[in-house]
Design a protein around this nucleic acid. Structure first.
Lengths: 109, 109
DNA sequence: TTACTATATGAGTAGATAATCATATAGTTA
DNA sequence: TAACTATATGATTATCTACTCATATAGTAA
């Protein structure tokens, strides 16, 4: 791959990671992994204002991770990119590894 | 898991994702996947100033993804959290999926 | 129609982030 | 020792981000 295409790939990867890199957005994905939900339930789960959650949702939609459908007054969001969940398995492994490292550090102190 | 611990997990996951969510930092990880490298070579690969790259490196070190050793004047960085690379396989899948979606969209337009 | 509900959006603000440039540190070599 | 090299750090600035609150939209129900 040439330098320029490589840079485009890095940019695209960074874009997706950036869209995921927020505790509320991670909570949303975790909540949606078992099925679709409306904004009000998502907001309650995430523990944040609806208007704020609505903005986080639109970030996830525009990076292609979520999709939505309308049902009367409600807007129902669901996971579009299932691969994202594998992704979270990976990051959980990393978090666990870090926790283990800290634990080992504590032992020798 | 209780609400409070759950929030801590989301925060920790977001912290790691945030540390990864930058094109230069992704380039660094990609460059280091095949072995350790000094700052000057990393900077050249990433196409950015050494001082800037140095800061990006310290972000990756403090989130536990990289480690380093000193060798004379040089500082040699290497991957610490190997699991990160699985992680990138996952995100590459997502990027490909998105590209495929765009392609399909183009066809019907 | 009006009142109500769910969601989205815009303005404003505070705080975080990244890049650049200058400077500091610390190891090397003459 | 002084000069040089690799890296790190601090100050500054510009840009981005997230949150809050107010307002807009659009579907529902009386």
């Amino acid at each position: 791959m040439d330098k320029k295409s490589q840079k485009m790939v890095y940019d695209k990867q960074a874009e997706i990671l950036k869209a995921l890199a927020h505790p509320i957005r991670i909570a949303i994905l975790d909540f949606l992994k078992d099925g679709e939900q409306c904004v009000c339930d998502i907001a309650e789960f995430a523990g944040s204002e609806r208007s704020n959650v609505s903005k986080h949702l639109s970030v996830l939609v525009s990076c292609g991770v979520l999709e939505f459908r309308k049902e009367g007054l409600k807007v129902i969001y669901s996971l579009k990119a299932r691969c994202i969940m594998d992704f979270f398995k990976c990051i959980t492994t990393c978090v666990k590894q870090q926790a283990k490292d800290s634990e080992n550090l504590l032992k020798v102190l």
